[in-house]
């Protein structure tokens, strides 16, 4: 192999810069990992001895357990509802013209730019106005609105790349619209639907600011429980929980990347 040429130094400098930035991205995760395995309660680097005990403590902490359970309930409902609503709407958005099309689209995408604390406050007040208790329904409704833009975007991108002639072919072979949808459109959209649901689920499970406003003690989700814990205690249980979080998220993303191609889902693949 021949040595690369003139732009080598630029290339090396660029690689160093990018590596440094990626190190900045990884630094907190790395530090938390050390803290989580530190046997002592006070943070110190490097730790004098190592232990799993903070993991045990985190797993045994009641608020975390309840938060995890509540989080799963909220996430399960919110992401599934958002997927159904969002996929259906992305479909009509891609195919048809109808009254208020742009208005509804604009409103549904607005949560991307409106602060979560405003949205949380809004649903809190709305629930109070309607006389609803601060139960799961409010939390789920709030989360559906928050993650809907991501589902819409994900499904819309896959719809755009779907060859509509395949649907015409199915129709010409005698499939009525419902059968075209279930036998051609939905199977071909599957990657977009799965990634849309997955993103919705991850975002909902991690949503914090709006949840802080709309959850009550009984419906507290895991991020809210973690926030309360950090405010009260300084022991590394939280670090242990963070490590579990980081590992779980990274694994989910690696699997998603293998099966769905994150680059495509995030629309960052080169066009050629």
């Amino acid at each position: 192999m021949r040595k690369p040429r003139v732009s080598t130094w630029g290339g090396v400098a660029g690689a160093v810069v990018v590596a440094a930035i990626l190190a900045f991205v990884l630094l907190p995760g790395f530090v938390v990992m050390i803290a989580a395995f530190n046997a002592r309660a006070i943070l110190s680097f490097p730790p004098e001895s190592w232990s799993w005990r903070w993991f045990a403590k985190a797993l045994a902490y009641d608020d975390f357990r309840a938060g995890f359970r509540n989080g799963l309930i909220v996430t399960g409902w919110a992401s599934t509802i958002a997927l159904l609503v969002g996929a259906a709407f992305a479909f009509v958005l891609d195919r048809y013209a109808f009254p208020l099309k742009r208005t509804i689209e604009g409103v549904l995408l607005a949560p991307l730019v409106i602060p979560h604390f405003t949205i949380g406050l809004g649903f809190l007040i709305l629930a109070a106005e309607l006389g609803a208790t601060r139960g799961f329904a409010v939390v789920v409704a709030c989360h559906v609105v928050l993650v809907l833009p991501f589902v819409l975007r994900s499904v819309y991108i896959s719809l755009r790349s779907l060859d509509q002639r395949l649907e015409l072919a199915a129709a010409s072979l005698g499939a009525p619209p419902g059968r075209v949808l279930t036998t051609v459109t939905i199977p071909l959209l599957a990657p977009g639907l799965v990634s849309g649901w997955l993103f919705a689920a991850i975002l909902s499970f991690n949503e914090f600011t709006a949840s802080l406003f709309v959850t009550a003690q009984r419906t507290q989700t895991l991020p809210v429980a973690m926030y309360n814990y950090v405010r009260e205690y300084a022991d590394p249980s939280m670090a242990a929980l963070s490590v579990m979080y980081i590992v779980a998220t990274a694994i989910i993303l690696i699997i998603a990347n293998l099966f769905l191609g994150l680059g495509k889902v995030l629309n960052v693949e080169e066009s050629r």
Binding site: G29, V31, F208, P223, V230, S242, T249, A250, L253, L262
Partner: peptide, 26 residues
């Protein structure tokens, strides 16, 4: 490419609390 993407994207899905806590530790 995939490795860089995962490193960059993972923090997005960790939520504000976990990331903020990590920075407290830092």
């Amino acid at each position: 490419k995939s490795a860089m993407l995962i490193v960059v994207v993972t923090p997005l899905f960790l939520g504000e609390v976990v990331r903020t806590y990590s920075w407290i530790v830092v």
